[in-house]
């Protein structure tokens, strides 16, 4: 419509821009702040908010390099941040792959095959996915102590154990993938079966290649969930060298040993890649999120 914008619309737009910029300033302030702090000398907020004499010391420590302070003492990195990041990425990637595999096969059966207990299981999954793991931590701990006794590689204080524990959270993903499968014409697989494909081949050669978009969504969601998961990891992991980033990073803000600047550098360094992954993927994720529930 080629209409002349009325005066009121222009004012309204101006008001919207002002409001949005004000709001954004408020929202982004903590994030900009933490970047500034990561370059500020020392671990305490004294004096300026914008660093007057920026230093890379916090970043050196975060990257695992030692630094030498004014008195000439060598200060080793307080925590193995890069190792924690690596642990987090490792656990998240492997568990996301396994979650995609498990929930895809499950979703295929729920979407395409008839079997006893199908609708009961589907409903049960919807209910159970609302119970947070944090409520059953005692049981988790007990469960993993038992596993440790019989099969230590999958027990307490191991990454495989943690990955194993994360595999329980597939209910939501099964629903998401199932919904997607149901939008794919069933006669494609029937046609493949007439062509001589076994059910497994029909699944692998026809359905899977067509589902890549939703599998990517589930992978990223599972990856982010795993990388930000705190309670279960805090119970299962004990050695400093085995911690994930989510568990380890809180040690920086110990009241006895407050490492605010070091934390800021570590947080920016490790948070940035995850944030970027999320921002890049958000277009595809929005659909998956609205279909599912709440970010966990």
């Amino acid at each position: 419509m080629a209409m002349v914008e009325s005066q009121s619309v222009i004012y309204r737009k101006l008001a919207a821009h002002v409001f949005l910029w004000f709001f954004l300033a408020l929202i982004i302030f903590p994030l900009l702040m933490v970047i500034a702090i990561s370059f500020r000398t020392g671990n305490f907020a004294v004096g300026d908010i914008i660093p007057s004499n920026p230093t890379l010391d916090h970043w050196r420590l975060a990257l695992g390099m030692s630094i030498i302070d004014e008195s000439g003492r060598t200060i080793p990195p307080p925590f193995p941040v890069l190792l924690w990041l690596w642990n987090s990425v490792k656990v998240a990637v492997i568990s996301a792959i396994l979650i995609v595999a498990l929930s895809t096969t499950c979703a295929y059966a729920f979407a395409r095959l008839r079997f006893s207990g199908r609708s009961l299981l589907l409903k049960a999954m919807l209910i159970f996915q609302m119970f947070p793991a944090v409520l059953a931590l005692v049981a988790y701990y007990a469960l993993f102590s038992r596993i440790t006794e019989y099969f230590p590689p999958l027990g307490l204080n191991t990454h495989p154990g943690l990955i194993f524990a994360y595999l329980g959270g597939i209910a939501l993903h099964v629903w998401t993938i199932k919904g997607y499968f149901e939008t794919i014409d069933k006669s494609l697989e029937e046609s493949a079966m007439l062509d001589g494909a076994s059910p497994w081949q029909a699944f692998r050669l026809i359905l899977l290649p067509l589902s890549v978009p939703i599998l990517a969504v589930v992978f990223i969601l599972a990856f982010i969930t795993a990388i930000t998961e705190y309670p279960v990891a805090s119970i299962l992991l004990q050695d400093e060298a085995k911690l994930t980033l989510a568990v380890g990073s809180q040690y920086y803000l110990n009241p006895q040993e407050y490492k605010w600047g070091d934390f800021a550098a570590a947080a920016v360094m490790s948070g940035l890649p995850i944030t970027l992954v999320f921002l890049l993927a958000q277009r595809w994720l929005v659909g998956g999120l609205t279909a599912g529930g709440v970010k966990g």
Partner: peptide
């Protein structure tokens, strides 16, 4: 099984991959 019946089928939706 379908494949061993010697039938070829054209689906309503065509079911092209």
């Amino acid at each position: 099984p379908p494949v061993n019946r010697g039938v070829g089928m054209v689906f309503q939706s065509y079911a092209l991959y």
